[in-house]
Amino acid sequence: MTDAPGADPATESFVAHRNLLFTVAYEMLGSAADAEDVLQETWMRWVQVDLTEVREHRAYLVRITTRQALNRLRALSRRKEAYVGPWLPEPLLTAPDVAQDAELAESVSMALMLVLETLSPTERAVFVLREVFDLGYDEIAAAVDKTPAAVRQIAHRARRHVDARRPRAVVSASETRAALESFQHALATGDIQGLLDVLAPEVVLLSDGGGIKQAARRPVLGSDKVARYILGGAGKHPGAVATGLTVVNGNPALAMYLDGEMDGVMAVRLEDSRITGLYYVRNPEKLTRVGSETALTLR
């Protein structure tokens, strides 16, 4: 799978659309490792296709990727049932151009990815392909083995479900950064009132340690409990906890360091300038893609 001069047409098409295919798989799975496996499976099937029979390479590749992702999504659902504590999507360090694309940044945000977790595998595939990638109903029907009429119904049901749970308004990157800076300062100074000022009363903290790192086994609910949980954790390592602003899944986030080593990534959901969701990924198996940028695209 190289893009060297003189590469065959199958390789050239795959390489040209690779970032798109990865984005499709990642949005369906919430796991970069599984998305990479899906791309490998897609490639293995793609090279066996008679390209003279394929009218649109992009559509055909998306179809293969969707089918492989659906198969893996069903297996992944079983793994999540046995997961220790809350399961959060695998965070990706993303390039600045992702943050500048509001549609893409919103579609891969931790907040929306968690909403997508509440859909069935087929609903998630249909929603992603229709609402995020703007594929036609006929294309989606071919990818999920449904009729176009059935896909329309699934799309309507999934859209209604997601709209009821997604953030009410798109929040600018500058607004998110401002909230994170306030949060960062309060954490560094141990200022519980400063935390309470930036946290919404109904804030929810989800902490994913995967049974490897210490984390809350259940969601922490309410600003007072969340603030005390966060400051209590920092208090166990006085002077050893540091934070830095970064961009994860197209949105500003905090990189958390303990004794100079990456300890986790904290993404947020913001509404009315206050944090309503905190998503803290500590599982080291999910932090392999925060050291270098991952290319994502909707096209």
Rank of each mutant, 00 (worst) to 15 (best):
T23F: 08
Q214Y: 07
L231P: 03
L29S: 04
R269F: 00
E131V: 03
P167F: 04
I154L: 09
L21C: 08
K225H: 14
D101K: 00
P91F: 04
G222M: 04
E36D: 12
L254G: 09
R74Q: 13
I64E: 00
R299L: 12
R18H: 15
F14I: 02
V132N: 09
L51M: 15
A35K: 05
R72P: 01
A33V: 13
F183Q: 12
V62T: 06
W43F: 14
A234Q: 12
G250D: 12
D8N: 14
H57Q: 11
V268W: 05
R157Q: 15
S207M: 13
N251W: 06
T189I: 02
Y26H: 13
V203K: 10
L180H: 04
V248G: 01
M266N: 11
T297M: 03
A142V: 00
K146E: 10
T176I: 14
H156Y: 10
R78V: 09
K213S: 12
L278C: 09
G85E: 00
R166Y: 04
R78M: 02
R168I: 08
G232S: 08
T189C: 04
G209R: 08
T65C: 05
T288R: 14
M256Q: 11
T147A: 07
V203E: 06
L93E: 08
T2I: 13
A155N: 02
T94D: 07
M28W: 01
L70W: 02
D208M: 09
L92N: 07
S77C: 01
T2C: 09
V15N: 12
Y60F: 14
G136S: 11
M1P: 09
V128Y: 04
V98F: 05
Q153E: 15
L199E: 07
V84R: 15
N251A: 10
I275A: 06
V115F: 03
L116D: 01
H156V: 11
A200Y: 03
S273D: 15
N249S: 08
G232L: 04
E261S: 13
R165D: 03
E103Q: 11
V144R: 00
R74A: 06
E103K: 11
V98A: 09
V268I: 15
R63F: 00
V128E: 05
P5S: 05
V108Q: 07
Q153K: 15
Y60P: 00
A125H: 00
A179F: 07
S77R: 15
A99Q: 14
G260Q: 10
L296F: 08
V115Q: 12
L205W: 05
S120C: 03
K286Q: 12
T66S: 02
V268Y: 04
G194S: 08
M113K: 11
K146V: 01
T2A: 14
A95H: 14
E53A: 15
L119M: 10
R166V: 10
Y83N: 00
E202Y: 01
A186D: 06
L258G: 11
L21K: 05
H237L: 11
L278S: 07
T189W: 03
R166D: 04
A255S: 14
S292G: 05
L254R: 10
L296N: 07
R55D: 14
V171H: 06
A186R: 06
R45I: 03
P121A: 01
S107A: 15
L287N: 09
M1G: 13
R152G: 09
R217E: 13
P201C: 08
A35G: 05
R79F: 08
R165H: 13
T294P: 05
L61H: 03
V54H: 00
E261L: 13
M28F: 01
D134K: 12
Y229H: 13
L135F: 11
